[in-house]
């Protein structure tokens, strides 16, 4: 209330309204959690029900028919800044909703969730459903609001496992835990595979010759990520394929230490390790790769590793 208010017009306790048979039936059904309309002599179904046909003034019939609880939005408005008298204290929509089985529309609150702006899915024609209050008293606000009808679901899923990384991976991560990057050289093709798998995927032969690789390499290609992800650094961040010096294939890693728009194919990088005391037996010991002051590798030299 504004501080300069010097007069309030309010009937103490509120007006007591007798509602008559038709509104009374609607509100009683509503209290029981049901939505009904009333049929006019002309066959239309009025929701909310009136004692009369709005077009002709004739009495409606005594036939009440179930409608909803779903309906279609015929128009809507968006309240960005709710008034004290409004039913919600955060932004929301008003909507006219033609309930299934009805020929007229009911005006009510449409709650599409907490949004500062109208969400894109809010539009005329959208399907909505009534949400009833638990403590219903027989009033239009026994419907707490309408909510969008379900068009998609989220499906939480959690299963528990006890996994083994396999011996080769375990050996690789043991190296990482000590600050070393270890690969396997294939006896057939001579290429160094890092992280090693204990076999050469190309030649289909087991591998076992360990090779320790330097912590430097070359960015072959990369992506600038603008889509936020709770697990990732702030956007934009760069994910890159890094070809370690001496390796035969690239590793996917974060590249940081320079603006995203300055990352280049062929750029020379070095692994940035977390402080030793934070090391565990996981790849997270390497935060990311960062540039080193060396000339870029010509494209020709990396084109086969893309």
């Amino acid at each position: 209330m504004r501080s300069d208010v010097n007069h309030v017009l309010e009937f103490p306790g509120g007006y007591t309204r007798s509602v008559g048979p038709v509104i009374g039936r609607f509100l009683s059904e509503l209290r029981d959690g049901r939505l009904v309309g009333v049929r006019t002599a002309g066959g239309r179904v009025l929701v909310p029900p009136a004692e009369y046909d709005p077009d002709t003034g004739e009495d409606v019939t005594d036939e009440f028919v179930p409608v909803g609880p779903a309906g279609t939005v015929t128009t809507w408005s968006w309240v960005a800044d709710p008034r004290p008298t409004h039913p919600l204290d955060r932004p929301f929509a008003w909507a006219l909703i033609r309930l299934d089985g009805a020929d007229t529309a009911l005006l009510h609150v449409l709650d599409v969730g907490d949004h500062a702006e109208p969400p894109r899915f809010l539009k005329t024609g959208m399907r909505v459903r009534a949400k009833f209050r638990d403590d219903r008293v027989g009033g239009i606000r026994d419907i707490e609001c309408f909510r969008p009808e379900v068009t998609s679901i989220t499906d939480p899923s959690r299963l528990e496992y006890r996994l083994q990384g396999g011996r080769a991976l375990d050996r690789f991560l043991s190296g990482i835990a000590e600050g070393r990057i270890i690969g396997h050289r294939c006896d057939v093709c001579g290429q160094v595979i890092v992280p090693m798998k204990g076999l050469c995927p190309r030649d289909g032969v087991p591998t076992s010759e360990e090779v320790e690789l330097p912590h430097t390499g070359t960015v072959t290609t990369f992506a600038v990520n603008n889509l936020p992800d709770p697990r990732a650094p702030e956007v934009p961040f760069v994910s890159a394929y890094v070809l370690l010096d001496g390796a035969g294939l690239t590793m996917l890693a974060l590249v940081a230490g320079l603006p995203a728009d300055q990352v280049r194919m062929g750029m020379r990088v070095r692994a940035a390790w977390r402080p030793r005391e934070e090391w565990t037996k996981s790849m997270s010991n390497i935060k990311w790769f960062e540039p080193i002051d060396e000339p870029d590798v010509p494209f020709d030299e990396i084109k086969d590793y893309l």
């Binding site: 408005s77 968006w78 039913p87 239009i140």
Partner: peptide, 18 residues
Amino acid sequence: PYYLAPLGLDADSLAALQ
């Protein structure tokens, strides 16, 4: 007074629907 006023609906909100 039965279906609309109890919602606290104001004139601007109604106009916006139209």
